[in-house]
Amino acid sequence: MSASQFASASQVQAKRSRRNALRSYLGAYGFMAPAGVLVVIFFLIPVAIILYLSVTNLASSNFTSDLAKMEYIGLRNYETLLNDQFARKIFFNTIFYVLFTLSIFNVSLALIVSLLTTHIDRGAGFVFRALWILPRITSPVVYILIWKRMMAEAPFGILNQFNDWLGTPTYNYIATNPWVFVVVVNGFIGLSFGMIIFTSAIESIPKDLLNASLVDGSSKLQRIRYVILPLIRWPLLFVFTYQTLSLLTSFVEIQLLTDGGPGLYRTEVWSLTAYHRALSNYFGNAQWGYGSAFAVLLVLIGVVLAVIYMRVFRFDELVAEPRVETL
């Protein structure tokens, strides 16, 4: 057999083995296909459309049935955005909203609730956690209505009934303290996510480890500090990261509660602005292109934050493959 024959033979073999490998992966691709199709249709394509819209002047004011007439205007939407006198305020509103809701409710209180409910009788713990899930499983419209009815002025609001009886003036509490309620109302929903994750993480710590700590001489508080918290580090960072991103994009509750008010943009956040600009502008002028620019920036901020989190928290180390135990 000559050298060239040998080479071609090995090439054929390589091709065949590649085809075999492909065939063996076919099953795996088959299983991934439904999810893949959904991601493409409902995420990648919309993102592409938004990206495109953000560099056009598409708006209801210049909208015709002939979409080909919409104009490419380059980065002019972004230019307008950066010069928008309210963009700065909305940006800091967003940071304030995310930071406070996240740190107070979605992480801290979620952790406290799961620690408390795992340190009491199992049944009672379950009941308390079930109660905390109610805000999340209630329809947002109903949930916000409940808050509004509770906080409204007399004779509609329940709390103000007391002011009424006492003869003190009655307020719409949401209008007088909008930020408190934006954070609390969202926090009550956000808490349950971390609570579920933390609780399952705490419950999956082997009983022996928890007992060992007590026998070694720890109090229950010391056990939380030295054993439980370090062992749920991964879920903690996951909830922190995931909830940052989901708070950044959430606006339904704020829209229903204050709609960014009262007054000019007092509780307006970035994602709500994108919605307002693109789909619900005051004078019926929906600026689809301009709103898309807001949305694109939000996606960018989210991606950058996600990457920073992954680096800072070193997620890859936390999910390192466990070593097979040898005797």
């Binding site: 022996d208 007992n211 060992a212 026998v215 070694d216 109090s219």
Partner: peptide, 20 residues
């Protein structure tokens, strides 16, 4: 008496070493 005040040492089947 709480476990921490009993001055006992314990060895578990699973070893129960703190992995972190």
């Amino acid at each position: 008496v709480q476990p921490k005040d009993r001055n006992i040492g314990m060895v578990f089947q699973s070893y129960a070493l703190y992995p972190h």
